[in-house]
């Protein structure tokens, strides 16, 4: 087990008073692979990371990281991991270089080695120009790059990245994905949490979807999509007033419940017979006199998978959900 899995967790339970942040989850990260924990705010993602990085103890269950039990050998775990927390991974009052040197020393390197390692990482992450400026003045993207560099100081065997791209603009996010992808190529085992389906799909070998402290689905992106059924027929109507009529028609044709997406003037329903369903839908819509702008057969997006699994859109994150799971 220890060699095959970088992270191996069984039956993790964590309660905060009356609230259950984790309600018994099992998951693992195979050595050299990337696992993403996907879920909305308050789902228990950060709690899981805190337990695995020895910051919190599970009320029940066991976890092994880099071959060591987090409960009985926390120090051995700490020597072998890198953690990029959601914030506060780096010290805003220190310069980028000072941060990396300090971390190197706290990872028990000699000062000389810590300095040369810092210089190496600053160059690799294109932070040479900003190296001797206070981190407080960094842009979001620069700061995230420094976060990542900080996790790599002591050549960890397992990396924990808690929402690594939250708060970044799309360009900075893309850039960071590129860095993460190269990390993964090098064989580092990574557990990352994210609210972004695209991020999980792009970076992870395995995706674990959690909500309210429970795992509600797992697999790679393709398996997750398959899990909630196959193709969907996707109709965009010209006149929003006819959305209901279109939904009724589509329900009759498919024999299933058609969903209305008012914002995009779309009606979506499962297409059990594939192209045959499309043909029948086109005929029925024409007969009902509903003008159609677009009619297509689609694979569900991960967003739709998530909606199906949790009953809420993936990015309903700021809806006042308390930052539970801390």
């Amino acid at each position: 087990m220890p060699d095959e899995y970088a992270v191996y967790a069984r039956g993790l339970v964590r309660r905060y008073g009356a609230k259950t942040a984790l309600a018994g989850v099992d998951f693992e990260v195979k050595t050299g692979s990337v696992t993403a924990i996907l879920g909305p705010n308050g789902a228990g993602k950060t709690t899981a990371v805190r337990i695995l990085t020895t910051l919190s103890e599970a009320d029940e269950g066991e976890a092994t990281v880099a071959g060591f039990n987090v409960r009985t050998h926390p120090h051995e775990v700490r020597r072998r991991i890198g953690l990029a927390a959601q914030d506060a991974t780096v010290d805003p009052l220190l310069t980028g270089r000072e941060n990396l040197v300090m971390l190197g020393e706290l990872y028990q390197m000699g000062r000389g080695e810590a300095k040369s390692r810092a210089a190496e990482l600053l160059t690799e992450f294109s932070l040479d120009d900003a190296a001797d400026r206070k981190v407080a003045g960094y842009s979001g993207g620069m700061r995230r790059r420094l976060d990542l560099a900080a996790t790599l100081v002591a050549h960890p065997s397992v990396l924990f990245l808690d929402e690594p791209t939250t708060g970044l603009d799309p360009r900075a996010r893309n850039e960071l994905w590129g860095v993460l992808a190269t990390l993964v190529e090098r064989g580092t085992s990574v557990l990352l949490t994210t609210q972004y389906l695209e991020e999980a799909e792009r970076l992870a070998d395995e995706i674990i979807v959690i909500d309210h402290g429970r795992i509600i689905a797992r697999g790679d992106a393709r398996q997750l999509k398959r899990e909630i059924g196959g193709d969907h027929v996707h109709v965009v109507v010209v006149d929003p007033a006819r959305l209901n009529d279109a939904a009724v028609t589509l329900s009759e044709v498919t024999g299933a419940h058609a969903v209305i997406e008012a914002a995009t003037r779309a009606v979506i329903a499962p297409a059990a017979d594939g192209v045959q369903t499309i043909v029948r839908a086109a005929q029925a819509l024409g007969a009902a006199g509903i003008a159609v702008e677009d009619l297509s057969l689609r694979q569900p997006t991960l967003d739709e998978v998530f909606l199906e699994l949790t009953g809420q859109p993936a990015n309903a994150d700021d809806a006042g959900v308390p930052a539970g799971g801390r």
């Binding site: 990872y107 028990q108 990482l121 690799e124 992450f125 294109s126 860095v179 190269t182 064989g187």
Partner: peptide, 15 residues
């Protein structure tokens, strides 16, 4: 910004 390939080599023995 171009980011060169990070040296994510894994140390077998920690410090």
């Amino acid at each position: 910004t171009t980011i060169s390939r990070p040296t994510a080599t894994v140390r077998t023995e920690p410090y």
